[in-house]
Every structure is written in C-alpha cells, then in structure tokens.
C-alpha cells in the first residue's frame, strides 16, 4: 500500500512537472512559430513605420534597455543600503522583520499602482512629463524588493567567521563592509537585479503613463518630456490593433524579442546562482 502511494505521489509530481514544461514549451513554440518569420536583421535595426505595420523595433529595444539600465542603477544603491542595514545596523529581530515585511509589501503592490504613483508624483507633480527617468525610477521601485532580498540572502550566507577574522585583524566596521560583506555578496546583487529586470522588462503598467509612447521618440536628451519607445508597450498597442496581418507578424516578432530578452536576463543570472549554491554546500 505504501509503495503504491509512493508511486502515485511520484506520478502526480512528475505529471505536474511535465505540465509546467509543456506549458512553457507550448508558449515558446507558438511565439517562435508566429514571430519567427518577422525576425530579420532589419527588424532590429530599423525604426517603426506605418504605425507598426512595417519597419523594425530598434528604438523600442533601445528604450527598453534604457529603462532597465536606469532601474538597475537606481535600485542597486538603495538595495545595498537596505541589505546592509538589515545585516549590520538593525540589532533587534523586530526591526529586521519590519524591514522585510515592508519589502514584501512593496513586492505585492500591483504594478499599475506604481504606474499611477509615478504618473502623479513624477510626471505631474515634478512636472517631468513622460520621461525615461520617471519610468526607470518606477521600475526600480518594482524590482527593489527582489534585488534587496537576494542581496540579504547572500549577506546572510556569508559565514560569521569571515567577519570575525577581519575584525581580528583590526579592520573597522566600514572596512569590513567593503572588504568582506560587499566583496562576497555582489553576486547576489547581480543575480537579484537580473531576475528583477527580467520581470520588469515585460511590465507595461508602470511605464505606460510615465515613460513610454508608441511612436516618435528616439534617444532622450533631457529628463523633462523625454519619453522613449519600449517593447512591452509596443506589443500592448499592436495587440489592440492587430487585424492587419502585417501588424500581426510584427506583434509576434516583438513578443519573441521580448521573450528572448527576458530569457537572456534569467540565463545570465544562472552562473552566479549556481555558484552560490555550490559555495553554500562546500563553503
């Protein structure tokens, strides 16, 4: 009987895993099949023409990369500060759990709410109008919990013996932070950022009111009234208007590129994640 239950459990688990893989595989298959024909060198290097029915997605790709880079640069220092605060300065478990709960709460905020918040505060109140910086900052808020928690986990994994050894040599607390804590945890920052950015890359809601327009933008040269094009917004607009078969193929092509971008970000995070696991087991 017990053997039978074991077998059934294994079978169910196996079936679920297979279902998840099949869903992923099916998704990728459909997008590659429909979007593949649209992919060409020109699709990456040309700009949008005929309201998306012709041309490429050059500025959309650049715009998305600008937003992601801004989000990374804005979130990294705050994540470092928060994670160090938790590891070094907060002494009581209560204050630490308040910080962590706050982060999880931010993580749970719907992205559309971030979008509205950015619209009210940055676009209207600061008077930036639609701006790449507003979008980048809002995306930074979206990914901040992911980055911070990843960095906290990495900091927590640093054995206390390193801190002790460094202190025993006479290093001050700030020297220990630089030489031991940050030196050994930057992988967590990179991993967390890549995973956060992989999620942020596809978000429309945080940037649609704050940073991105459908057509007519190139490289931003200022902060105010300097929107960018972006991939997810491009897909969002084309999807509402895809009766034209020309638009349809461009739509799927854009989706394929976005999927490729997200996968590459996740894959880029893989080596450091694997290394962290290895160190955790052998360290």
């Amino acid at each position: 009987m017990r053997k039978f239950l074991d077998a059934v459990t294994a079978l169910i688990a196996f079936a679920c895993a297979l279902l998840a893989l099949a869903l992923l595989g099916g998704l990728v298959y459909v997008i590659v099949q429909k979007g593949g024909p649209a992919i060409s060198w020109g699709f990456f290097t040309e700009q949008i023409r005929l309201v998306g029915a012709a041309g490429g997605i050059f500025w959309n790709l650049i715009g998305t990369l600008i937003l992601l880079l801004t989000a990374f640069l804005a979130s990294a220092p705050i994540a470092i500060a928060l994670a160090l605060m938790e590891r070094v300065w907060l002494k009581s478990e209560t204050s630490r759990s308040i910080l962590r709960t706050g982060l999880y709460a931010i993580n749970g905020v719907p992205s559309i709410v971030f979008g509205i918040f950015g619209f009210i505060v940055l676009v209207q109140w600061c008077g930036w109008g639609k701006s790449w910086l507003a979008g980048g900052l809002i995306l930074a808020m979206v990914i901040l919990p992911t980055v911070t928690v990843a960095l906290m986990e990495r900091l927590k994994a640093i054995p206390a013996k390193y801190v002790e050894a460094a202190a025993g040599l006479g290093l001050s607390r700030s020297q220990i932070i630089w030489a031991v804590l940050l030196r050994q945890s930057w992988g967590g920052l990179i991993t967390g950022s890549l995973l956060g950015l992989a999620r942020a890359a596809g978000e429309v809601a945080p940037i649609m009111f704050t940073a991105t327009i459908f057509a007519g933008a190139a490289m931003p040269h200022a902060i105010k009234e300097s929107p960018v094009l972006s991939l997810p917004y491009h897909i969002f607009i084309l999807a509402q208007d895809s009766f034209d078969p020309g638009v349809g193929s461009k739509l799927w092509g854009s989706a394929l590129v976005l999927l490729g971008l997200v996968f590459s970000l996740s894959l880029a995070a893989l080596p450091t994640r694997l290394r962290i696991h290895e160190e955790a087991h052998h360290g």
Binding site: K161, Y162, G168, L169, G170, V180
Partner: peptide
C-alpha cells in the same frame, strides 16, 4: 587594539582570494 593584539582561530579562515591578497588583507587596509 586588535591590530596590535592579533588573533589566530581554531579553524583557519582564509578569504576567497589569492594567497598574497590574504596575507595583506589586514595590513593593506590599515
């Protein structure tokens, strides 16, 4: 004080760095 009164622990604690970086780990920062 800890630089003047140094310490050797039960388990060797080497930092994930090269041999020479380990030797100079404290001295170079002090």
């Amino acid at each position: 004080l800890r630089a003047k009164v140094g310490m050797l622990f039960q388990q060797p604690v080497v930092f994930p760095a090269s041999i020479v970086d380990n030797v100079l780990f404290g001295a170079r920062r002090l």
